[in-house]
């Protein structure tokens, strides 16, 4: 994993904890979002913060329908951010 990616992952974990109102110590990539009690209303807050910080738009739709764990969410967001940078 490149340093960029590590930094990004760290930032995103903090962001998810913050916006999802979950203790940072509880967040881990393998955890299921459902088990962290992150619900659809939290998702829109998380995605709004991601849009503000990284300039990417992710709709609460297909892209998110297969997201179950924190890692799934990280993968999706990082891909989107990298696509955005490449564009």
């Amino acid at each position: 994993m490149s340093t960029d990616r590590e930094t990004l992952t760290r930032e995103l974990l903090a962001l998810v904890a913050d916006e999802g109102m979950v203790e940072a110590s509880e967040i881990a990539p393998e955890k299921r979002l459902e088990d962290l009690d992150i619900q659809s209303a939290d998702f829109v807050m998380i995605l709004m913060a991601i849009e503000e910080k990284y300039d990417v738009y992710i709709s609460v739709d297909n892209e998110l329908s297969d997201v179950e764990t924190v890692q799934d969410l990280l993968d999706l967001v990082i891909t989107k951010i990298e696509d955005q940078k490449a564009a």
Binding site: V44, M48, Y57, I58, S59, V60, D61
Partner: peptide
């Protein structure tokens, strides 16, 4: 509507 994120880009 953008913030509700139900619109496609």
């Amino acid at each position: 509507w953008e913030l509700l994120r139900v619109m496609t880009a």
